[in-house]
């Protein structure tokens, strides 16, 4: 564990909590992509099956459980409790366009051809693209609520911090996981355009709107 990893995990947790609180406090999930949230729940479910097979630390198990519970809670709030506020007309990205190719790739490119390892690989690839329905939704409506953009910024920061963590681990421990690194870089690149808009608009007190 290094400081970048820890900050990355906390940033990830912050993102998840910002989103849950936003939905809970405003009693509305307008502007949030339910598709992205379902994909994240699927990511955590397929990745954290190792909760049952190997123990790393209390921190590791506790964080996994928190991520899992929070992601299912978000999906529950969006599709059941506050379903009436869910903006499904603008959430039109087709999940199968991500899940099917990612599943195929996980079968072809993995560290070991075993069920748990393939599911882990699937979760890594899927996480890289799971935010696309949300970004697609923002590009369709042309704007995002400020709180939604804070959520995305925290989520993007988590990815960027993980890259720094990998560089650090490579030099200090000689550790690297090529699958995680390539997928993590792809994921971080997807946020670049958003980061630019966040810094030029949201941090100056304006709402996030896309240039016409």
């Amino acid at each position: 564990m290094n400081i970048f990893r820890l900050l990355g995990d906390l940033s990830h947790l912050l993102a998840i909590i910002i989103l849950l609180l936003k939905i809970w406090r405003t009693r509305s999930c307008a502007g949030v992509s339910g598709k992205s949230q379902i994909l994240f729940a699927l990511v955590f479910t397929t990745r954290y099956l190792d909760l049952f097979t190997n123990f790393i630390s209390m921190y590791n198990s506790a964080m996994k459980l928190i991520y899992l519970v929070c992601s299912y809670a978000t999906v529950f709030l969006m599709y059941f409790k506050f379903k009436a506020t869910y903006d499904s007309n603008h959430d039109t990205f087709r999940m199968e366009f991500l899940v099917v190719p990612v599943g195929g790739l996980a079968f072809l490119v993995n560290h070991d051809f075993t069920p748990l390892e393939i599911l882990w690989t699937f979760s890594i690839y899927l996480e890289a693209v799971a935010i696309l329905p949300q970004l697609f939704m923002i590009s369709k409506t042309g704007e995002a609520e400020t709180i939604t953009s804070h959520y995305l910024f925290a989520l993007g920061s988590y990815r960027a911090l993980y890259i720094v963590n990998w560089v650090f681990r490579f030099y200090t421990e000689g550790f690297f996981d090529l699958i995680a690194i390539v997928a993590g870089c792809v994921q971080t690149i997807l946020y670049c355009d958003f980061f630019y808009l966040y810094i030029t608009k949201v941090l100056k007190g304006k709402q996030l709107t896309l240039p016409a």
Binding site: D50, H111, D177, L178
Partner: peptide
């Protein structure tokens, strides 16, 4: 590809 290790990252 690198050797398989327990996944200590989240």
């Amino acid at each position: 590809l690198p050797i398989l290790k327990p996944k200590d990252e989240l």
